[in-house]
């Protein structure tokens, strides 16, 4: 009994016709193109995950949600930088409202605060993001438009000039918070205006609204050398940012909410920077606001009411 010769199975390889070959090729090509067009997403995958995408709004997170988020951040930072960070979610303290005072008589314009801030807060080194701009201003004027932040003098201070560092003024009436369409930035009860980098959509409205040029945008993926990463981090503070989000000075939340002075203050070689709790009548800042010639809140006429005060000794 011999089997009759079966007709070739149309689904088998042998039955490959020109039509099915072309169809297959077209489907393959289409899929390849789709995969390739999604390739730019691979860059994102370094620093965002489904977990982050599904993360809740900061104010709605329970402590256990936050613990998960912190574990994710620590994992991601370790993966990217090879350093195990210590991330905390520090809450504002009761009975504390932060105020910064800067002595314009003392400041010599050495820009050490700028770089101490960058080192403390894990800003991108290239492209460079700095929270503090030191303006070199001619004596006899308070017009910031006469200020120059690109001064390249070999020695400071220069005769006939004074220096005015400008950073986030932590306004009581912050225009940046009002314009944020997604509430990714808000003012906490200790006076610090914070940003949730996982909630920010990068529209840059806040940058446009800020009269002090205090906010910075990550146009590219931030670059931080592994050996310069500060592993002591806070969720609303100096944890590494990603491309497409805003950032700004947050009075070194990871330090100040743990009771320490900000980094820019500790590095200042002339003691021009003073920081503390304005609700404590014994604090340095209370003394300064009571006793010294505090002349401005910068751009007072904007009605932003900064918590950053400039004062003079004489």
């Amino acid at each position: 009994m011999s089997a009759p010769p079966t007709p070739p199975d149309p689904t088998s390889d042998a039955a490959m016709t020109r039509r099915s070959f072309l169809r297959g090729t077209a489907a393959f090509g289409g899929l390849t193109a789709l995969a390739a067009s999604l390739a730019p997403l691979r860059e994102l995958s370094d620093f965002s995950s489904t977990e982050q995408f599904l993360q809740k709004y900061y104010k709605e997170m329970t402590p256990s949600d936050m613990a998960k988020v912190i574990a994710r951040i620590e994992r991601e930072v370790q993966h990217q930088y090879g350093v195990r960070p210590h991330v905390r979610d520090l809450k504002p303290m009761d009975g504390v409202e932060f105020v910064y005072c800067l002595n314009l008589t003392r400041c010599i314009g050495c820009r050490k605060c700028v770089h101490a801030c960058v080192a403390e807060n894990n800003q991108s080194r290239n492209p460079e993001i700095q929270y503090i701009r030191v303006l070199k201003m001619p004596h006899g004027s308070m017009d910031v438009e006469k200020g120059d932040h690109n001064y390249k003098d070999a020695q400071v201070p220069d005769k006939g000039f004074f220096y005015m560092p400008v950073q986030c003024q932590q306004c009581k009436n912050p225009p940046c918070v009002k314009v944020c369409p997604v509430n990714a930035t808000w003012q906490e009860k200790d006076g610090i205006t914070v940003i949730d980098y996982d909630w920010c959509i990068g529209c840059r409205y806040c940058e446009a609204a800020c009269p002090y040029f205090a906010r910075r945008f990550n146009f590219t993926k931030p670059e931080i050398p592994k050996d310069r990463l500060n592993p002591e981090m806070a969720y609303l503070g100096n944890r590494p940012r990603k491309m497409g989000v805003m950032e700004k000075c947050h009075f070194c939340i990871q330090r100040t909410r743990a009771g320490k002075y900000p980094a820019c203050l500790e590095v200042c070689p002339v003691g021009a920077r003073k920081f503390g709790n304005i609700l404590d009548p014994e604090s340095e800042v209370s003394h300064i606001l009571r006793e010294k010639r505090v002349f401005i809140q910068l751009k007072e006429e904007m009605g932003t009411s900064p918590r950053f005060y400039y004062y003079f000794d004489k």
Binding site: K260, G271, F275, G276, N277, E291, D313
Partner: peptide, 22 residues
């Protein structure tokens, strides 16, 4: 007088004296 009140000179450490020393 300013130095005694902390308004002159350099300080480091803790602004919150309950948590640590300055």
């Amino acid at each position: 007088r300013d130095w005694d009140a902390g308004a002159h000179g350099r300080t480091s450490g803790f602004w919150d004296r309950k948590l640590g020393e300055a």
